[in-house]
């Protein structure tokens, strides 16, 4: 039997991701199955592999110029109060 990632661990992660898992026990089962499948990565033998990524040159980057955005973005946002964006209280 494979060692399944336990439900408690998954619930903790859900909390971290701001996902309310109250009525979603089905999700836990499916996530467990997917993670179990990911174990296949252990067989790939890639431990010593270097990570490769896209690269660019410094010259290609944006020049440092101030260019104001021409629209009133605040008006476009969903909830604001006066000049401020409204967010729920912290704790």
């Amino acid at each position: 039997m494979k060692n399944l990632v336990n439900e408690e661990e998954i619930s903790e992660v859900a909390k971290l991701m701001k996902i309310d898992l109250a009525d979603h026990n089905d999700h836990i089962k499916r996530v467990q199955k997917m993670l179990e499948y990911f174990d296949i990565l252990d067989n790939a033998g890639v431990e010593s592999e270097e990570i490769t990524v896209q690269e660019t040159d410094l010259d290609k980057l944006r020049d440092d110029k101030y260019n104001p955005y021409d629209k009133n973005l605040l008006k476009f946002l969903k909830s604001y109060q006066g000049k401020y964006v409204k967010a729920p209280k912290l704790n």
Partner: peptide, 13 residues
Amino acid sequence: PEVIRRMILGGFV
């Protein structure tokens, strides 16, 4: 539901 599962996976892996 699929997005929720990916969020959990994405928090985990």
